[in-house]
Amino acid sequence: MQRRDFFKKLGAAAAVAAVTPTISFAADAKKPSGPNNLSFKAAVDAVTGGKTPVVSSKIKLKVPEIAENGAVVPVTVEVESPMTEADYVKAIHIFATENANTRCIDVHLTPANGKAMFATRIKLGGTQEVATVVELSDGTFITASQSVKVTIGGCG
């Protein structure tokens, strides 16, 4: 092997070694690891049992379009329902699609609630979509979602 070729190979190997760790590190940083990691699709499947929820205008999902602080984002879910024994909202599930654990809260309601509404405050890791899946008493699932821009550190 000539001296020139040897240096060429050495340079190529060094370049690969320099680039690969940064790539893998960036991929790790994107997905924060938590004890209860769960992707959005897996979370929805766990709730609906494999059924695909239908997008419905019956749900009113109130989330701010721009959240100044990702640690406190108010979420309100209201569903049009008579809330009688025959027809009521069984459960409201709230998801943050890009968090490490996408499930936020499952609320199981009864006709004694009188009105199908639930409000809370959630944490968001960054700009993402907030989704809700609602289970009705006849076993069907409806859904709604809205994107939230989280502006940590100013201009975002």
Binding site: N36, V72, C104, L109, A116, K123
Partner: peptide, 14 residues
């Protein structure tokens, strides 16, 4: 509930 809820959480319903 999972960990994605805010510190000092509020639960509102009817």
């Amino acid at each position: 509930v999972w960990e994605s809820l805010s510190t000092n959480p509020v639960f509102t319903t009817y």
